[in-house]
């Protein structure tokens, strides 16, 4: 009788161990996650015109743009370590009929990380900003026209093109 009880307890222990081993069921499935990030560039200016009012060259040797500082937002996605560049190229000199004011008389100062001051040019695009890597950058650009008694009267105009490049 005693021998039988010992045997029964031993079997019960085996049975409980089997229950625990069988009790944990797990199954897994692998899924691949992929994401494509393509090169993109997006440029926004707070004003599409820059206006210089008439002024006395003696009292206003430098005429600030009526619009004040232009806010520039340059957003771009590029490769790791890639350079995002914002340039400006004038189409010509300021023209009023046959009269001209050399575009080099238009300069700008800038604020914001990566933004740079410069002088307008009609042959070589000038750097307005340059950054390493992807990002959303904002800054300002304040234009000024060097005033002169030598300018012929007239309404002068020219266009300039901003180009944001994210290679």
């Amino acid at each position: 009788m005693k021998q039988t009880r010992v045997l029964a307890l031993g079997i019960a222990a085996v049975a409980l161990a089997a229950t625990q081993g069988l009790g944990a069921a797990t199954v897994t499935s692998n899924v691949t996650v992929s994401a494509t990030v393509a090169a993109t560039a997006k440029l926004a200016l707070s004003s599409s015109t820059v206006t210089f009012a008439n002024a006395d060259p003696d009292t206003s040797p430098s005429i600030a743009a009526t619009e004040g500082a232009i806010t520039i937002t340059a957003k771009g996605k590029t490769s790791t370590g890639g350079t995002i560049a914002l340039t400006l190229l004038a189409a010509d000199d300021l023209k009023s009929g046959t009269d001209a004011i050399a575009i080099a008389n238009v300069t700008w100062t800038a604020s914001g990380t990566g933004f740079a001051a410069g002088t307008m040019n009609k042959t070589t695009a000038q750097t307005v900003g340059s950054w390493t890597g992807s990002g959303n950058r904002a800054g300002t650009q304040s234009y000024a026209l060097a005033n002169s008694w030598s300018y012929a009267t007239g309404n002068y105009a020219v266009t300039a093109t901003y180009t944001l490049t994210a290679p």
Binding site: T32, A35, T36, V37, T80, N136
Partner: peptide, 13 residues
Amino acid sequence: WTYNVGSYSTSVV
């Protein structure tokens, strides 16, 4: 906008 250009991947179990 801060993501760099590329084809990204990973796996999920």
